[in-house]
């Protein structure tokens, strides 16, 4: 009713009120289907996983899981004595090394395909091959090549190097990183390329007018443009590396060598080979929390959101 009041009476507060009205009248109910879906697909399973992590659920109690004994934080305590910390360390270090190594490769590849030349389309397509291959295929091919009598060792022996074991022992850790880098660098490349494309033509012209040679131009003009997208790419890539299950599973099998017993592997083995569903749920929840903390801090620090509002939230 207030909106019907004569305009001259309360002119100044009007826009404020208008805003209030539109905010209140937003058809939020339209979000219901999405919200319901989110609840069913994400929230409910997460709550269930939390619940399962607090009960002693295994093959013996599975059939009457509702009656499985509640054991509080025992699963969490046991997680720490079951090698989870070591797995987290392996996962995080592996992910960070992989990301750090893929950034220069990705950016270099993006720069190489930035300017037009004959065959650029082909080069761009070839660069994407590792990325479009399914992880399972990548791991199977590398597994075959890295056999003790595989093609890699055959080549190495031709130049007088004894290749040794790639898929067992301490070196398996570096094998995992190597294959991950091979498969994941095009992601950084794609993000960097997208950022390069968005650099205004005027910027190139201006640096040409100023007589900037390629290196100062690259370092002071182009790279700052890439900062945001590449940082975002680093974040996403690191998370992808941490969550990669297929690659270590196919490369090394289960049980995996201690050096590549990454988080998804230990959760998988606990759940599907030892059948300790409660314990594995606790491990998964812990992993989630441990990854979420630095992620949260990082997101706050780099403020990936471009809008002020989003940043403040």
């Amino acid at each position: 009713m207030a909106t019907l009041a004569p305009p001259e009476q309360k002119a100044p507060p009007r826009p404020v009120r208008r805003k209030g009205v539109t905010e209140q009248q937003r058809p939020l109910w339209l979000l219901t289907p999405g919200g319901l879906l989110m609840t069913v697909v994400i929230v409910l399973p997460l709550i269930l996983a939390l619940w399962i992590s607090l009960i002693d659920l295994d093959q013996y109690t599975l059939r009457r899981w509702v009656e499985a004994p509640f054991i509080g934080l025992n699963n969490y305590v046991e997680s720490f004595s079951s090698g989870l910390l070591n797995s987290i360390w392996i996962s995080v270090s592996f992910a960070v090394i992989s990301t750090v190594a893929t950034v220069p490769i990705g950016i270099a590849a993006a720069l190489v395909t930035q300017n037009k030349y004959r065959g650029r389309g082909l080069v761009r397509a070839v660069f994407l091959i590792p990325y479009v291959l399914p992880s399972f295929v990548v791991a199977s091919v590398w597994r075959t090549m890295l056999q003790p009598d595989g093609i890699v060792n055959a080549w190495l022996s031709k130049v007088g190097i004894d290749g040794g074991l790639w898929l067992s022992g301490p070196r398996s850790y570096w094998t995992l990183i190597l294959v991950e880098i091979w498969a994941a660098w095009p992601f950084i490349y794609l993000m960097a390329l997208a950022a390069l494309q968005s650099v205004d033509h005027e910027v190139h012209e201006a640096s040409a007018v100023d007589g900037a040679t390629w290196w100062p131009k690259l370092r002071r003009v182009i790279l700052p443009y890439l900062r945001g997208p590449v940082l975002l790419a680093c974040l996403l890539a690191t998370l992808n590396h941490i969550n990669n299950f297929t690659l270590p599973f196919v490369l090394f099998g289960a049980p995996a060598p201690e050096d590549v017993n990454v988080m998804p592997m230990i959760v998988y083995v606990t759940s599907f080979q030892s059948l300790r569903f409660g314990l594995s749920a606790a491990m998964a929840v812990l992993s989630l929390i441990l990854i979420a903390i630095p992620l949260f801090i990082y997101l706050r620090a780099v403020r990936l959101d471009v809008h002020d509002e989003g940043g403040r939230k």
Partner: peptide, 18 residues
């Protein structure tokens, strides 16, 4: 399959009851 999906799978297994 990643860690999150394994968690989800375990949970969905339980959901199946309902």
């Amino acid at each position: 399959m990643n860690a999150k999906r394994i968690t989800a799978l375990a949970a969905v297994t339980a959901l199946a009851l309902g």
